[in-house]
């Protein structure tokens, strides 16, 4: 059914992604396809890593741990963005194309007032990506 599942991961708030991660792992196991954990980092040092390389290594370790726990095939893909506060949606959509994902499973918050000004990432990605998108609340 699906060739590859992509899960956008915010390593700084990985604790809030539980349901999305679980869903992706379950679907990965069910369809027997790899789950690719995609993380977007800054080129400047961030609270998670001094360099994009260090971030990529952390993401890879995270993906490996997810694969081990869920028993599915796990990959990781780290992308450095010039301005992730603004470019995140576009970066994720491009990442889905780059890794060849046809399903994106992503966590999203409960809609609020701010969504009228800055639409949620889940909504934006679902609107623009060619892949199927499953938004998990």
């Amino acid at each position: 059914m699906f060739a590859k599942i992509m899960v956008p991961v915010d390593l700084a708030h990985a604790d809030k992604l539980g349901r999305a991660l679980e869903t992706a792992a379950g679907l990965g196991g069910f369809y027997g396809c790899p789950v690719c954990y995609v993380g977007v980092t800054t080129e400047a040092p961030s609270s998670l890593a001094h360099t994009p390389e260090e971030y990529a290594a952390k993401l890879a370790a995270f993906a490996a741990a997810q694969g081990e726990t869920g028993g599915h095939k796990a990959e990781s893909h780290a992308v450095a963005s010039h301005d992730p506060s603004v470019d995140l949606d576009g970066t994720l959509i491009k990442a889905a194309e780059d890794v060849g994902a046809d399903l994106i499973v992503m966590a999203s918050h409960i809609p609020n007032l701010a969504d009228h000004l800055w639409p949620s990432h889940g909504g934006q990605v679902a609107r623009k990506s060619h892949a199927s998108v499953l938004v998990v609340r």
């Binding site: 790899p34 040092p45 961030s46 609270s47 001094h50 360099t51 994009p52 390389e53 260090e54 971030y55 990529a56 290594a57 890879a60 370790a61 993906a63 490996a64 095939k73 990959e75 990781s76 893909h77 780290a78 992308v79 450095a80 780059d98 890794v99």
Partner: peptide, 28 residues
Amino acid sequence: DPSTPPETSTGIPAPEGAASIIDTDYEL
């Protein structure tokens, strides 16, 4: 990074200057 699983693609230029990173306890 040899510890990175082979299926991982980073898409990021890997700085070889990692050795010169300043070791500080401060976390951004």
